[in-house]
Amino acid sequence: VSSEIYQWVRDELKRAGISQAVFARVAFNRTQGLLSEILRKEEDPKTASQSLLVNLRAMQNFLQLPEAERDRIYQ
């Protein structure tokens, strides 16, 4: 997982004009609270716990989908 993931998520929230709650639900089936905590802490993926890595990997995989497909999912 790239250490850029945190910025990618922030950029996607702005680009798509969606809330953290929507992104958390569709990208990795978690709550806004968890996403907020992940973004606030910005732990280095190289030293992250296994559970954090699973979530970061799910977010990264979601962000690799084509933009149009992500936008459809947000609706």
Rank of each mutant, 00 (worst) to 15 (best):
V1I: 10
V1W: 00
V1C: 03
S2C: 11
S2I: 07
S2H: 09
S2N: 15
S3C: 11
S3V: 10
S3D: 15
I5W: 01
I5L: 12
I5P: 01
I5N: 01
I5V: 09
Y6E: 00
Y6K: 00
Y6H: 02
Y6W: 01
Q7Y: 15
Q7E: 15
Q7H: 15
Q7F: 02
Q7K: 15
W8D: 15
W8K: 15
W8F: 15
W8N: 15
V9M: 08
V9D: 01
R10Y: 12
R10F: 12
D11A: 15
D11T: 13
E12Q: 03
E12M: 01
E12N: 00
E12A: 01
L13K: 01
L13P: 00
K14F: 11
K14E: 11
K14Q: 14
R15A: 00
R15Y: 05
R15W: 01
R15C: 07
A16L: 02
A16P: 03
A16Q: 00
A16M: 04
G17R: 13
G17D: 15
G17M: 11
I18C: 08
I18Y: 00
I18V: 12
I18E: 00
I18S: 00
S19F: 02
S19P: 14
S19C: 07
Q20C: 05
Q20L: 07
Q20K: 11
Q20T: 08
Q20I: 05
Q20N: 09
Q20A: 07
A21D: 14
A21V: 07
A21G: 12
V22L: 10
V22F: 14
F23H: 03
F23M: 02
A24F: 04
A24N: 09
A24V: 01
A24I: 04
R25C: 06
R25F: 06
R25D: 07
R25N: 14
R25K: 15
V26N: 01
V26M: 04
V26S: 13
A27I: 07
A27C: 07
A27E: 02
F28P: 00
F28I: 11
F28D: 01
N29Y: 05
N29P: 05
N29F: 06
N29H: 07
N29R: 10
N29E: 09
R30W: 05
R30A: 15
R30Y: 05
R30F: 05
T31Q: 13
T31W: 03
T31P: 07
T31H: 11
T31G: 10
Q32H: 13
Q32C: 09
Q32M: 07
Q32L: 04
Q32K: 11
Q32R: 11
G33E: 15
G33C: 14
G33Q: 14
G33R: 11
G33D: 11
L34P: 11
L34Y: 15
L34K: 13
L34Q: 14
L34N: 15
L35P: 01
L35Q: 05
L35E: 04
S36L: 07
S36A: 13
S36T: 12
S36C: 09
S36Y: 08
S36I: 06
E37Q: 10
E37K: 09
E37R: 07
E37G: 08
E37H: 07
E37F: 02
I38M: 10
I38W: 02
I38Q: 01
I38H: 00
L39Q: 02
L39E: 01
L39R: 02
R40Y: 11
R40F: 10
R40M: 12
K41D: 07
K41Q: 09
E42N: 10
E42H: 10
E42S: 12
E43R: 07
E43L: 07
E43G: 04
E43C: 10
D44T: 07
D44C: 12
D44L: 06
P45S: 02
P45N: 01
K46T: 05
K46Q: 12
K46C: 10
K46V: 12
K46W: 04
K46D: 08
K46Y: 07
T47C: 12
T47S: 11
T47R: 12
T47A: 11
A48Q: 01
A48D: 02
A48L: 05
S49G: 11
S49Y: 04
S49T: 13
S49I: 04
Q50W: 07
Q50D: 14
Q50R: 13
Q50G: 13
Q50C: 14
S51K: 11
S51H: 09
S51D: 13
L52Q: 08
L52C: 12
L52H: 10
L52R: 07
L52P: 05
L52I: 11
L53F: 06
L53D: 07
L53G: 05
L53W: 05
L53A: 08
V54H: 13
N55L: 09
N55H: 13
N55D: 15
N55R: 07
N55Q: 12
L56Q: 03
L56P: 00
L56N: 04
L56V: 01
R57L: 14
R57V: 13
R57I: 13
R57F: 09
A58H: 12
A58K: 14
A58T: 09
A58P: 04
A58E: 10
A58F: 06
A58Q: 13
A58I: 07
M59A: 08
M59I: 14
M59F: 08
M59D: 06
Q60S: 11
N61Y: 05
N61E: 13
N61M: 09
N61T: 11
F62V: 04
F62Y: 05
F62L: 06
F62E: 02
L63M: 08
L63Y: 01
Q64F: 10
Q64K: 14
Q64H: 12
L65G: 02
L65A: 05
L65Q: 14
L65W: 06
L65D: 01
P66Q: 06
P66M: 02
P66E: 08
E67A: 10
E67K: 08
A68E: 13
A68W: 11
A68K: 12
E69D: 13
E69P: 01
E69F: 06
R70Q: 01
R70E: 01
R70P: 01
R70T: 00
R70C: 04
R70S: 01
R70K: 06
D71K: 05
D71L: 03
D71H: 02
D71P: 00
D71E: 06
R72V: 10
R72Y: 07
R72P: 00
R72W: 09
I73N: 09
I73D: 05
Y74K: 01
Y74S: 01
Y74Q: 01
Y74N: 00
Q75S: 14
Q75N: 13
Q75G: 14
Q75D: 08
Q75F: 11
